[in-house]
Design a binder for these strands. Sequence first.
RNA 1: GCGGACGUGGCGAAAUCGGUAGACGCGAGAGACUUAAAAUCUCUUUUCCUCAGUGAAGUACGGGUUCAAGUCCCGUCGUCCGCACCA
Length: 875
Amino acid sequence: MSRLIPSEIEPKWQKAWKAAGCFTARHDPARPKYYVLEMFPYPSGRIHIGHVRNYTMGDVIARYKSSCGYSVLHPMGWDAFGMPAENAAMASGGHPKDWTYSNIATMRDQMKPLGLSIDWSREFATCDPEYYAQQQRMFIDMLDAGLIYRKAAMVNWDPVDMTVLANEQVENGRGWRSGALVERRELTQWFFRISDFAGELLDALEGLEKWPEKVRLMQANWIGRSRGLQFAFEVINAPEGHETIEVYTTRPDTLMGASFVGLSPDHPLVKSLEPGNPELAAFCAECRRMGTSEEELETAEKKGFDTGLKVRHPFDPDWELPVHVANFILMDYGTGAIFGCPAHDQRDLDFARKYDLTVHSTFAPLDPGAEFVAPENGGAAFVPQKSERVDYVRGFAGERIQTGEEGIATAIAHFESLGIGTGVTKFRLRDWGLSRQRYWGCPIPVVHCADCGVVAEKRENLPVRLPDDVSFDAPGNPLDRHPTWRDVPCPVCGAPAKRETDTMDTFVDSSWYFARFTAPHATTPTDPAETEYWMNVDQYIGGIEHAILHLLYSRFFARAMHLTGHLPEKCKEPFEALFTQGMVTHEIYLTYEPLRYDGTTVSDGVPQNEGRRPIYHLPEEVERSADGTVVLKATGEAVEVIPSAKMSKSKKNVVDPVSIVAAYGADTARWFVMSDSPPERDVEWTASGAEAAFKHLGRVYRLAFELKDAGAPEGGAEDEALERATHRAIADVTEGIEGFAFNTSIAKLYGFTNTVAKSAASAGAKAEAMRVMAQLMSPMTPHLAEELWAMLGGTGLVAEAGWPKADPALLVEDTVTLPIQINGKRRGEIEVAKDASKAAVEALVLEHAAVVKALEGGSPKKLIVVPGRIVNVVV
RNA sequence: GCGGACGUGGCGAAAUCGGUAGACGCGAGAGACUUAAAAUCUCUUUUCCUCAGUGAAGUACGGGUUCAAGUCCCGUCGUCCGCACCA
């Protein structure tokens, strides 16, 4: 075979790897381990090119580390519970289980031809009863340990999916999957006490040095720590049981500028007033209707309602402040009550002006300047950086002139010394609600008994299996209306009781799968010997979209598993290094169809169907015309090209890996997605780029084919030069892989190929170079690498050959070219021995024609020699 | 609004312990081989010029530090991302 035929070599080598058991992860105490993991996929039905890029990155690392002598764990599984399966069942009949497992089978079949070095013996799906049984077991352990509790809570209700969503699953007020506007509802829900760990999860971010700064920052913002003061206002003419109002503030230094107390419509005091005050009740009802959606919050008017109550200022018994209910105060942050300081908060200022409340500055700029207008005189609220020094015109603690930070600290200290307030640290992070009113999830293993209350299922009865005989012809949860599954005896007293019909959020499933991979068939959630050896994940790879949810939950879950004895202490941060990869994008081809006015109008009088409608075209429907523009093949009509767009079926710019592999082979697909762009950035799929990748691999193959009967190297200068180039390539390619710069490794391999092709070295020396080429290419294009290796007489499989080592002695050239700069501009160059002394270099430089000319007989002001790099002459 | 990242040829991009800007690839152009095509190979390709010179300019824009700046500092503009009534 003188030509590269991927469809012949790829299955051949995949078989050889399987026969040799190359990718079976072996718990070998004698060898260091390396655990590389890509975020496991949801079995949507087909793999897409983004998966190919994601898994190829992991595969490059896995194969490289394996070559370096590590015992590598590189597993694959399926994040298999979740709503699409139910939606599919509702849309086209069938069962979520069948839909899911058949998708998994399809996707596995599509992935295997990629030649990934995955240990398939460890594969599992989160919907396997063997997996969720262990999850239920941990749920009970965590319940016993007080890490899980139940409470009635306002939840985000998705009216389309008929389920509860976590705050993180609400995007712009809409359900992240259904896109429906989310409503507020009060339900009794299960919660993980993740907020108890807020401080720890925040502080531990510091130690995650191999995580992207961006992700750590996003998590830190999400956890949202604030330091403030909590204290109580005394209520005048207080209703029974509400003698004080506790407030929380991050700006206690502005207390002397307080002008009102604001309460959330859900505040207990407000609720107690509502029955006797119909107007107030109406106002609160309106606020609650408004919902939590950001869209509404954004546009909603800041509204208040005066309760008529007054509170006393803590430092002045004669100073009374009105108490308003305000629609912008959240019950679940702080105490649900604030004091408003209009001078230093724009929102409070707007509110004060609307309801005619007093405005007093507590501090003023040190140097006001002509354009400064104090808020009490109609200016904007004065909100300087907390680190800025200001003049406390109405301060009560600390220096007259101090920073906001100092003012806050002294104010808290002052309250604490008087015993009327406490410094408090609050977090934005709230507990993780895990109940979902869905069928296709891990059943929550508890039973509701009239006498015993909510009790956990007995451990020996696990798993609580999902029943197979369910129907999806009605919305809501089929478990709720299952004829027999629900009714069970109480595990404690044996009386008739009812099973919990809620299932777990699928983020629970993905919060520990990485630990399960270390002992996927254990009869306990984890196996201590295996977690001890394999954990932690040395390199985790996935999309930035999981920066907050999945990664934060997993960090919490690892701690919870540690506390319940399922993970050792060292696993509290289970991901040592994280890499977030970019997407694979593709151009969109677009023409427009004019729309005619159809005689109707929409509500605001705008004519219906004005303008034009986009029509998308598949890549094969367009071509580049002679003048470089893109036109439709059929009509020659000009096509608008939108570059680098996220792939989407409706935009017709999806590249299907299956057809790419069929056309060019897996190696080409792998090579292409790793080339061109740095891995963290998006890469644009282009037909010409894929073609180029394929051609290059063919060229490498031919180069090796011509050398397959080469004899021994002959020695000599050309052979030696090629050997040096080889070691240079080893060093550069290795550096690229180590640094997650696969695109530069590939660029070096292109360069090395050119070098070998043009080299005048003996055939034997070239064959030697090509064997190294096979080793260096093996992480990216493993099938071609095996073929080259076998053709050139390599021993065994290249997958099992060690990684080549660059000889430092061969990396340094005997002579180096030093550019000569004159006043910082390049004016010439000299060749010197690599170990030439500074004095020798200086002498040579001063003889250089350009330097002589520039000096005009004088001597240089300064002569800078950076050994091995550059010379700069200042005249 | 708050926080962050990033701006380099026609395009994707290299080069950041400050030391030859544009490696490598795409696209484009020229040529070789061929009856022709495909395939393959070779060369050119930052811009400008009184166009082959030891020429000038050049890494968004304007300043600064330095013998030397894509890289460091200050400001401006632009693009992208995250968060957002959080008291």
